[in-house]
């Protein structure tokens, strides 16, 4: 990512003030990444572009709520794009709508040291995911990128629903253990 965290945070802050030029810069700097994420989920170019457009409408309208949520700016943008895409994928399927990421009580602001730790933890998840049993990794990715429910996953892995939940939670536990090392 060529733009620094600080650039992106500044653009979001100015967007919150209704600054269209800053929003334009934010879009230009991040749209290709967000389209990549939407395309991975929806696997259809037109649907992914629609989802990306919806994501930027939400970003424009809710930029003033960014600072309170304790997320890094790219995570905030990616999570909006991912949730919007999953909701589109699930539309009409009578499934939970993921909805918005902004209507939350503010987390305590983190100091630079804590942020650095959180950042390196986030980077470590790639290697920790690699250490997971492949089926558990597939299940977590199936939920994050495929919008799969526990029922979908239980079908896919041909195990009972409750077993599926226990089994995925064990995967999450291994992830946490790995990241705590």
């Amino acid at each position: 990512m060529a733009n620094s965290r600080q650039d992106i945070e500044n653009w979001i802050a100015k967007t919150a003030m209704g600054d269209r030029a800053a929003f334009n810069q934010l879009y230009d700097a991040t749209c290709a990444k967000l389209l990549g994420v939407s395309l991975r989920i929806l696997k259809d170019r037109a649907a992914a572009e629609d989802a990306m457009q919806d994501s930027y409408v939400k970003i424009w309208k809710n930029a003033d709520r960014y600072s309170a949520n304790g997320l890094s700016p790219m995570t905030w943008l990616i999570t909006i794009a991912r949730n919007t895409s999953i909701d589109r994928l699930r539309a009409g399927k009578n499934m939970t709508e993921l909805g918005d990421v902004y209507d939350r009580i503010p987390c305590d602001a983190r100091g630079p040291e804590e942020l650095a730790v959180a950042r390196s933890e986030a980077e470590r998840i790639i290697s920790c995911m690699g250490e997971l049993e492949p089926k558990r990794r597939d299940a977590i990715e199936g939920a994050y990128f495929g919008g799969k429910s526990y029922a979908d996953l239980a079908d896919q892995f041909e195990i009972p629903l409750n077993t599926m939940r226990t089994w995925l939670r064990r995967g999450l536990q291994s992830l946490r253990d790995c990241m705590a090392r």
Binding site: L35, N69, G70, T75, C107, E121, I125, I126, F145
Partner: peptide
């Protein structure tokens, strides 16, 4: 809220290998 933000941060990192696609 913090626990959710932490997981969002972790899982978003799984998008690191997704190539950007220009709209």
């Amino acid at each position: 809220s913090r626990a959710v933000a932490d997981w969002e941060e972790y899982f978003a990192e799984m998008t690191a290998d997704i190539a950007p696609v220009a709209p």
